[in-house]
Amino acid sequence: MSAATAAVATPSARSARSRRSGGPSGPRQRAERREAIALVIPALLPIIVFSVIPLAVGVALGFTNATLARNATIEFIGFDNFVKLAGDTAFWNSFGIGIVWATSVAVLTGVCALALASLLNANLRFKPLTRIIVLIPWAMPPVVTGIVWRMIYDVNSGPLNAALGWFGLGPVNWLGDFSTALPAVIVVGIWSGLPQTTVLLLAGMQSIPTELHEAAAMDGANGARRFWHVTLPGLRSVLIAITSIDFIWNFNDFGIVYVLTEGGPGGRTMIPPLFTYLEAFRNREIGYASAMGDVLVLAILLILSVYIVVQFRQQKEGRS
């Protein structure tokens, strides 16, 4: 998948370069390669020690019967864990919820952030103030996120039901009701991811040369058209990067969901990483848990590769 991305991501760059240096393996190519290595090396040691090694160990444990017991012996058992996992219905059932949860949060956050970033980029009043207010939820310690939203959603004393009460509606048992629990949690997911996504998109908008906007404006394009033809294409790579990462993070993060609902009501908000956690730490079957992790990696990469390839293909078609 990465190769595909690499190939489609830089078509213009490649053609420009080969024109200039006359061939893929010219001296300039080799120089650039050396340069790249030099730019990467300083971080390589910590990356290998603290990231690559633990990651490789984690992935490999999926093929063992490792437990966290004292003096546990570890044996390679091939694909036994995966065979066992194939029959684990509870784990697979949670996949559906996980995908609904992660996709909704990633897509809705992306849409909201795009709108919000455009608003913050427009010439509206109180710009410095609004930009800071938008960022505060990001700065708040995550430990209170669950707590404050539980207060807001509270059936009896929550402000949300109080507000509904003014219109003669409710009360709704947001987190306790089987039909509203997942949507309610998704809203919290959007709330906590929106500021960061907005900032990243705003930074992307700042990087679009103003000349492009001016040129489009001179061609008579109105705001919506300029957004569609200048802003959006310019943001495309950033937008793809941020929505895919939002998807991954939310798929992997059972923290918010767990704090709000502890998987309830009735398992309506139980997502796959919770099983990984319980298996790894509570059952201490780290081998089996790592097999779950390996499966999650494959599943997410599959979903993402479809998304990214489709996105970049559109981009390519849009250009030609």
Partner: peptide, 23 residues
Amino acid sequence: ADAYAAWKDTVLNPALQQYLGDQ
């Protein structure tokens, strides 16, 4: 019971929630 903690979170709590929610 060794596997109680995981069973509690993935089976017991959800099932009891459904029962006490009259589902």
